[in-house]
């Protein structure tokens, strides 16, 4: 570590931290609305209703079958060309929307798989005591699914945090973008600055990963099932 590296460190760090805050904001908004959307779709898909389940299946496949980079470009540059006012998003909205939709595809799969993992007998028992479908879901099925859902969700959130780095290509000043802007000032320190950026991501993601692992160990079922979902298991789209 030479004097030069220390100088560069102090002159780029304020900007990197600013970008870090933006990354935090992007991840939080993406997590929040991606989870809400994903949970809703997942609960519907978990019921295996004739028309909706295949439709949601198609939604998941389209989002899983294309790189996030390409989804982002389409949200930014193709949707506005439809000429429809409600699809003309500004940069921030487009970034939030595409991150949330990307997250929702994973959350949907986790939630619906967790609901389907609850034995049929549970449904039958709740119907037997006179619960409606909604009541069974609320009081019997969902409380049991939560244990299965939580560890897998953690992994999805780490993926989302990392996916925010791709938003840098459309000029949102998040951590990676701030790194690139700093590199313009110190072109010769490109590797050093990228390493600093990587360290900041690590500081953010590592605690989340540790929590996920801890949750997985605590719920043994979750561990087995969680790895299957996290590894991007190609689920049937029935």
């Amino acid at each position: 570590m030479s004097q030069h590296h220390i100088d560069v460190f102090f002159s780029v760090m304020p900007f990197l931290l600013q970008g870090f805050a933006e990354t935090l904001k992007l991840s939080l908004v993406g997590v929040l609305w991606g989870s809400v959307l994903g949970a809703l779709l997942g609960i519907i898909r978990g019921q295996q209703i004739a028309f909706f389940s295949p439709l949601i299946g198609a939604y998941i496949h389209i989002l899983r079958g294309t790189p996030f980079l390409v989804q982002l470009y389409i949200a930014y540059f193709v949707l506005p060309n439809t000429g429809l006012a409600w699809l003309m998003w500004d940069s921030q909205t487009a970034a939030f929307a595409s991150l949330g939709i990307y997250t929702s595809s994973y959350v949907t799969e986790i939630v619906s798989a967790a609901i389907r993992a609850i034995p049929r007998g549970q449904w039958e028992a709740s119907f037997a005591v006179g619960f409606t479908r909604m009541q069974s879901l609320r009081h019997v099925i969902l409380p049991q699914s939560v244990g299965l859902i939580m560890p897998s969700l953690g992994g999805v959130y780490v993926n989302l945090i990392k996916a925010t780095s791709i938003v840098s290509v459309v000029g949102i000043a998040e951590l990676t973008r701030q790194g690139e802007i700093s590199i313009l000032r110190f072109p010769a320190d490109i590797l050093y600055i990228y390493l600093l950026v990587a360290l900041l991501y690590f500081a953010f993601c590592f605690p989340v990963l540790m929590t996920v692992d801890w949750l997985e160990r605590r719920t043994k079922v979750g561990a087995k099932y969680g790895t299957a979902v996290l590894s991007g298991r190609l689920e049937a789209a029935e």
Binding site: Y73, N81, M88
Partner: peptide
């Protein structure tokens, strides 16, 4: 001012950003 990657500039202009 809106900042874009070089390859994003023209698509963003066409998209009315």
């Amino acid at each position: 001012l809106q900042d874009y990657d070089w390859k994003g500039l023209i698509p963003a202009l066409l998209a009315g950003k």
